[in-house]
Amino acid sequence: MILTVVLVVTGCYTNFEPDIESRPVLCMNSLLVPGEPLTVSLTRTWRWSEGEPDYNLDIIVRDAEITYTVNGSQCGTLTFDNKKYRADYIPEPGDHVVLSAHSDKYGDATAEVTVPVAVAIDRVETDVLDITESISVDSDTLWEIKANFKVWFTDPGDQENFYLFGYDFYNPKGMTVPINPDDPWGNRYYCFGLAYCSALDYEQEPIFGEHIGVIETLFGDSYGYSMFSDRTISGKSYPLRISAPRLSYKLFDPTDNPELRTSSINMILYSISKGYYRHLLGLWERNEGMAGSIGGSGLGDAVWDVSNVSTGAGVVAARTAAVYPVQVYPLVISNR
């Protein structure tokens, strides 16, 4: 049996150059975020065997003209500066932005996007399942917390919405304080509060897997992908079930400074544009899904990355964040 399997799966790989013509076109990438100036990365597509942009291939298109309109009004031209085209315009939620690029060498590219309005996180319910406490040789205290969170939000229901869940941590700046307050020039403590974890666990939330087929659930990997649509929750209040299997919080503050106890884990619900969402779906399918695996081997329909630019290359996306901080210290205090 083993011999048979070995014989069948032993492949012979031969380098070659397929006789297919490929013509470079413009690729336009931009992520519009409220509060941040508009920037556009304008590059060209390249043939796979041509080289690696990070190494030996310059794909940046510097001599193009990029114009943009906001809500139907022509607003101006972007200028090239440090690898990107930039404008002073700062997007706001609800803005409809159209980007048009022209290059004498690579042709035209256009794309449009509407900056989504953030959907607030109503509340976060926290359930601490387990907590352990240990004190290190450096006298700081380490708590390891296992907790489940329910991140409640209400989908507006008036339109098609797309979301991306994320998180980050807020940690106050550490500070050095004298061990003896009467001796400010004597030995000093470094006081800090630091919350962190390697990753939150999304496996318990089925809506993150709505794009995953059954067999992909068995053989694919959904790790890192947390986009979803409101198709099944339109107009409803819904809790995202997030788990923190090992949330760590380290504190050293003999001074009992409240500022140092403000560490939080920030639950972020991004409202994302449709092009952003579709791009993520395509990204997951091509790299983790069954269609990507089969298509990539030539045994099924081809899977490529999804673009909303007229040339088929690049993504002009937008996202607006709603942030809900969950204070860590109170969790520790109330559950230890």
């Binding site: 990438n29 043939r47 796979w48 890192g224 992908y225 990204l283 030539g298 990355d305 088929g312 290359a313």
Partner: peptide, 24 residues
């Protein structure tokens, strides 16, 4: 088979870095 020959710049929206495959 469908053989995409071209790539485009990763917009950096996914959790990891990838080579973007251009439709053909």
């Amino acid at each position: 088979i469908t053989l995409p020959t071209q790539c485009w710049e990763d917009p950096g929206l996914g959790p990891w870095d990838y080579d973007m495959v251009y439709a053909t």
